[in-house]
């Protein structure tokens, strides 16, 4: 282990600082001509690929209905207790659907376990990462905010199937 130098041990060169400052400016100068890795967010948006875990959303079938059968497994597995579901009966063949489906985005930790446990492929992680609100009530996303047309989720669904 390198022994940490104390002030009294510094050489003259180190004590006057200037050479180090010049060296530092040199590195800055070099980097000005290298390619950039940062992004001018929010003017430029980050477009993640299918593997990205943004906020969880519900899959909306082509007929407009939700795919979810309100089994409550996502709500059970969610380590943050973010999901609250009220099931109800439907005339459709699947018998039950979520009358209320809410995710508390203040609780969600984007772990993706809900997506993993879902037996219906009905809840998936979207690419959406811009989540902001000004009070606790707005943080609770209902079906209106969660339902997303299946066409917009194709990339994620294919990613999931490919990684089973």
């Amino acid at each position: 282990m390198a022994v940490k130098k104390r002030m009294k041990d510094f050489t003259l060169m180190e004590k006057i600082y200037l050479p180090s400052i010049v060296a530092g400016l040199g590195i800055t100068l070099q980097n000005m001509f290298k390619p950039k890795y940062t992004m001018e967010y929010p003017e430029v948006k980050f477009m993640p690929s299918g593997h990205y875990r943004g906020r969880p959303v519900l899959v909306q079938e082509e007929d407009g209905g939700e795919r979810c059968v309100a089994c409550g497994l996502c709500s059970r597995v969610c380590p943050a207790l973010a999901i609250d579901i009220q099931a109800a009966e439907t005339e459709k063949e699947k018998e039950r659907y979520p009358e209320r489906f809410e995710i508390n985005m203040l609780r969600c930790i984007f772990c993706g376990l809900c997506e993993e446990v879902c037996p219906e492929e009905a809840i998936v992680m979207s690419k959406e990462y811009e989540i902001a609100f000004t009070n606790r009530q707005d943080a609770i996303y209902g079906k209106d905010k969660l339902l997303t047309p299946i066409a917009d989720l194709q990339e994620r669904i294919e990613f999931l199937r490919g990684n089973k």
Partner: peptide, 9 residues
């Protein structure tokens, strides 16, 4: 009671 709640909740 049908569909009102999961037993573990």
């Amino acid at each position: 009671f049908r569909f009102k709640a999961r037993v573990w909740d």
